[in-house]
Design a protein around this nucleic acid. Structure first.
Lengths: 274, 274
DNA sequence: CGGCCTGTGAAAATCCGGTGAACGCGTTTT
DNA sequence: AAAACGCGTTCACCGGATTTTCACAGGCCG
């Protein structure tokens, strides 16, 4: 549900193999199946795989040489959602076990029938059966904001909050599980699509942007709450100067509530640590 | 930094197979791996599989006979979160493709090495788990406290105890095995993620913090008990001024009960050595 | 009684996340 | 084509939250 990378029957696959005859035969089948595929070089960095938005990666360890294990581990670690299928000409039980443990989702031995390769890739990728794609069951309303999936945008009183694509996805992810604390790493993984590098502050920055925009159009409300050392939680709370004391759920003792009011043209921010 | 979100290496598997020698060999390996498994009858209704809470199902189509396809489709359709691995003595490409399309997650041919079977089951379960956002085990309640995984926090009477991340992890570790004494070193290793340096008092300090916070919100109860020279044990015990003498379970001789009451703003502490 | 071991408080050292702004980089405008 | 933008990413700084480290005091055990 996070990534809008929805597709029906067709998938996108990246292949690392140098056996031309195998590629030819498999290529024909893949095209017949209506899939998009691309044979990529051995040293393909993970970022490119993300950019290609492939659902699966087919690897022949012989093409990669001795760095296969390393590469396999790297890819599996960085792109947990990417299906990784190894297809080798010959292998021992030990190798297969090692490959699978390192993160491969399947291991096939050549010679193999292309139809089986396709079936196995499908099997590996199948899990992403999301409900009706963008047909989101009506807009969801939380607090004063209304999130409309058909517009990839949030609104307050019918007015667009002006979220960018990433900001919108971040908000949707959080708002999809109100009250649940979501870890930074999970947020990054779900919104950005790959593992978060140590020290990356992107999530924080985006959280701030979303807060800023929500607060601009819906002051007096607090939507995203910080959980120190963990992540964030979405929970619309009316907190403006209205209710003298309405909030009952005291999350943590000694909560410092501080609002930075500024409007030198920039927006105003408000962060609370629960 | 390796988050203690380590999955219990143990899984639960159901097996439908009638090849006794295969079962014997595989069974040994499964046990060695610390997994729980059960050989079930062919006609096993899906509800029972749900009740067994298995993560994966290993099937030999020959045991099921001609109704294999039907069963495979039924199971895969009814339990999308269950990993299904087929293990047949011989098969054609067409059969494998059909099985995979019908919902199987993997198809192995006998004879096969049990280690590979295990690796493939692990792979399938790993893949499944990633797709299905953690099936948050409902909140666990012990004594007066409620530990909620979705909030990374403990509550008493609906109010947050205000644990920090580390404190929470520590409590979860202890509370996961009520009544069991856990050694300091193990605690450190599991919560901090690496070996404890000689002379490190972190665990003690954190135990104290957790005790303090629990006691603040749930006075009259004792949760964490010290085992001199070993470690700590989690066991909720009502001990307040209520029961004059109800607690009969005398763990160790010589139990001195001492409560330090202080409230000069700081919290109150209570430690008991059993 | 004396040597470990653990409970306590607090200070010191780190870690974290909020902020504001600068950077790249395609795109769109002028 | 140059300049202006929109966006996502990265940096550096800072104050507050959290962890670690210390020095002691009180207990446990042989």
């Amino acid at each position: 549900m996070p990534s809008p990378t929805e597709q029906r029957g067709k998938l996108r696959v990246a292949i690392v193999d140098s056996d031309s005859s195998f590629l030819t035969v498999l290529g024909k089948r893949l095209e017949a199946a209506g899939w998009e595929y691309r044979v990529v070089a051995a040293g393909m960095p993970t970022e490119e795989l993300v950019a290609m938005k492939v659902s699966a990666l087919l690897i022949d360890p012989e093409t990669l040489g001795p760095r296969s294990w390393e590469f396999l581990e790297l890819v599996a670690g960085a792109l947990p959602d990417l299906g990784v299928i190894v297809c080798s000409s010959k292998s021992t039980v030990a190798q297969r076990v090692r490959g699978l443990r390192l993160g491969a989702d399947d291991w096939i031995n050549k010679p193999c029938h292309p139809e089986e390769v396709i079936a196995r890739i499908e099997s590996v990728v199948r899990r992403r059966r999301r409900s009706a794609p963008e047909s989101e069951a009506g807009p969801m309303v939380v607090g004063e904001v209304e999130i409309r999936g058909d517009r990839f945008q949030a609104f307050v009183a019918g007015q667009s909050v002006g979220l960018t694509r990433r900001e919108y996805e971040l908000l949707v992810l959080l708002a999809a599980s109100p009250g649940k604390v979501i870890e930074r790493e999970d947020i990054y993984h779900q919104v950005w699509g790959y593992a978060m590098a140590h020290g990356d502050r992107s999530v924080d920055v985006f959280i701030r942007k979303v807060r800023l925009k929500l607060q601009k159009y819906s002051p007096g409300w607090s939507y995203i709450h910080t959980h120190f050392g963990i992540g964030y939680r979405f929970d619309p709370e009316c907190v403006g100067g209205d209710e003298p004391r309405a909030n009952a759920e005291t999350e943590v003792a000694g909560t410092s509530r501080l609002q930075t009011e500024r409007l030198g043209e920039s927006l105003e921010a408000g962060a609370t640590t629960d």
